[in-house]
Amino acid sequence: MQNNTPYTLHCSSSECAARRGQVTTRQGTIQTPVFMPVGTQATVKAVTPENLYEMNAEIILGNTYHLFIRPGHKLIERFGGLHNFMNWKGSILTDSGGFQIFSLKDLATITEEGAAFRSHLDGSKLFLSPEDAVQVQQSLGSDIMMCLDTCIPYPATKDEVINSTNLTTRWAKRCRDAHTKREQLLFGIIQGGMHEELRKMHAEQLIDIGFDGYAIGGLSVGEEPQVMYDMTEATTPHMPKEYARYLMGVGTPQDLIEGVWRGIDMFDCVMPTRNARNGYLFTSTGRVVIKNSRYRDDMLPLDENCTCYTCRNYSRAYLRHLFVSREILSYHLNTIHNLHYYLNLMAGVRKSIEEDNFAQFRKDFYGRLECK
């Protein structure tokens, strides 16, 4: 394990495994626990960087697979990296592309060497090795890079899980060896399926290799939420306390609360942005389906407890009108609100951990949902 770590622990909850800290990248500090908006193709869909700054977003995601295919990492490198290309001044985490390749199913072949796959755009043959994944991310210039891993389907036999997890370990070593730009952090990804002993084994293997942070992968892939919570709770005790803990691809507001309870520092998910474009909006009292006729002449803001630009300026009736009329502004205003909700929720989580009353915060969170 490395001696230096970009994670600083400020305080821990006396009630559970929740912790308050920060991650330092070359772009600055990220206060944790944190939700990271997903900007798959060098954009967080439907909003501008300025919108994200107003919400106090400190870090966003980019996707290695998509940017590798279009517009190409070498083009982005000529612009000085993703930050310059998309005019984002905060930190950027890029995932390795492993999950996207896994989702291609019949279009991908996984071997010891890496992943051979066909582009979802034009069917052209492409290949990504662990070394390629690191090189692409170094060209993109992200602040936090992820090792290439092999995603495990759910359900899977134990032998399948063991073989896939062992391959991820071997790939992780190759990623570590290929990591030459040390100012860019590199996180390892813990696999192991739904088996506690394999999660523990894999965490120990990755810690032995040594990374700048550690992620839990292979969850939120179809299992019941309680299974995801149980596997998270079984894994975090084996992740070093002095390093950031990242739960990949998760999730609902409830998932964030439960992840923090179990010791997670970092989250990402397309849910707030994708749901916004589909008219599903998160509020302090639960989800609002804005197309419903009950909002046709509703003069109230979407969430009376929300201070986002959308809620300060527009009624539910107007938001419904935009959505049913398929106006582009609907995507913009809805996305501003949903991302603000997520980021504001995490700000409340951080404050409650500082004050050592996260258990009450969690209870109140569920209480507001039940009162709707």
Score class of each variant (00 low, 15 high):
141 G>I: 10
198 L>V: 09
242 E>S: 15
96 S>D: 10
358 F>M: 05
231 M>W: 02
65 Y>A: 06
62 G>S: 15
175 C>R: 00
279 G>S: 11
174 R>S: 08
103 S>W: 11
356 D>M: 04
24 T>E: 13
164 S>N: 02
321 H>S: 01
294 R>I: 14
121 L>P: 09
357 N>G: 15
37 P>F: 08
100 Q>E: 08
122 D>N: 14
336 I>A: 05
242 E>V: 13
288 V>I: 15
196 E>A: 12
351 K>P: 04
58 E>R: 02
320 R>G: 05
49 P>S: 04
337 H>G: 00
306 C>D: 01
72 G>Y: 00
231 M>E: 05
127 F>W: 04
269 C>S: 08
111 T>M: 03
88 W>F: 05
149 D>I: 04
92 I>G: 03
338 N>R: 03
261 W>M: 13
165 T>C: 00
211 F>P: 08
6 P>Y: 05
222 G>N: 01
314 Y>S: 12
52 L>K: 09
135 Q>V: 10
218 G>L: 09
31 Q>S: 14
27 Q>W: 13
33 P>K: 02
99 F>Q: 11
268 D>N: 06
221 V>C: 07
124 S>Q: 12
260 V>A: 01
348 G>R: 01
338 N>Y: 00
30 I>F: 11
270 V>K: 09
324 V>L: 12
351 K>Q: 14
330 S>V: 04
68 F>Q: 09
38 V>T: 12
134 V>D: 03
350 R>H: 07
202 H>F: 05
175 C>G: 01
65 Y>D: 01
256 L>S: 10
178 A>R: 02
69 I>R: 00
28 G>V: 06
43 T>H: 13
319 L>P: 09
345 L>D: 00
238 H>L: 01
135 Q>F: 14
308 C>L: 02
371 C>I: 14
171 W>G: 09
276 A>S: 12
162 I>D: 06
346 M>L: 15
304 E>F: 13
100 Q>K: 13
89 K>F: 10
226 Q>L: 15
224 E>N: 14
259 G>C: 07
294 R>N: 04
149 D>A: 10
266 M>W: 06
318 Y>K: 09
334 N>R: 03
188 G>D: 00
250 V>I: 12
58 E>P: 04
342 Y>E: 01
146 M>P: 09
97 G>C: 07
25 T>M: 12
